[in-house]
Amino acid sequence: MGLLDIKNVSKRFGGLKALSDVNLSIAEGTVHAIIGPNGAGKSTLLNVLVGKLIPDTGSVMFDGQSVLGRAPHEINQMGISRVFQTPEIFGDLSVLENVLIPCFARRDGPFRMHAFETVTNETEMVEMAEQMLGDVHMLEKRKMQASALSRGDKRRLEMAMCLVQQPKLLLLDEPTAGMARADTNNTIDLLKEIKATRPITMAIIEHDMHVVFSLAERITVLAQGTPLVEDIPAKIKGHPKVMEAYLGTAEV
């Protein structure tokens, strides 16, 4: 049994079968990529994982608990952090505050009326956030307003916000979409560094094969709502079924 177990999940939108009988297991400590051509059901699957969509049938278990129908903050408190396609950060706040908020969320739970403490007096939290910013090489930018950061730095900051919570599972939704090659490579390096320094499970949903093959330890290929193959990257490359899904026919 893996950290995340998706069993017999199906989802229809009217006449369209977005997901049909998906079975997928993500083992603890691996980097698992989910790839597939447009319309394969990647986004639907992701929305099921974060509780946004409830599937018609099947179950999604994370760490022994069902995630279905839970609010986003509950899913996060279970240990799943999410990186969005376009970086979602608190633009009006300083970089340090951006990282402090997940620190407080981790310590105090979904709500606490801590109106009489002072943020700057919470040395433990501030140290934790600064340490994390140091790890992603952004410590010197801690006083900057987050919206003034470059796109690459915004992505870095978002990763820091997710990682400082020490999640059991990090979900990455096309982390390099719309990025220039240099930024993409920076992100890959950052993710490799993260993977090397801490025990973390990652699920990457990605278009870019370059990213997938430089990071993933296991790959699931999704096509027309069903997992086609699941294997190590070396075997996915040139797999006839994958070729067929991406290029149309196997005879080509």
Partner: peptide
């Protein structure tokens, strides 16, 4: 309140509610 973690969360609500939810805060 402005200087407290509570006040910081309120400013985060103004800035990006979606991120706040996915950061585990109700």
């Amino acid at each position: 309140i402005f200087r407290s973690p509570f006040g910081m969360m309120l400013r985060a609500v103004k800035s990006n509610q979606n991120r706040l939810r996915y950061t585990g805060l109700n």
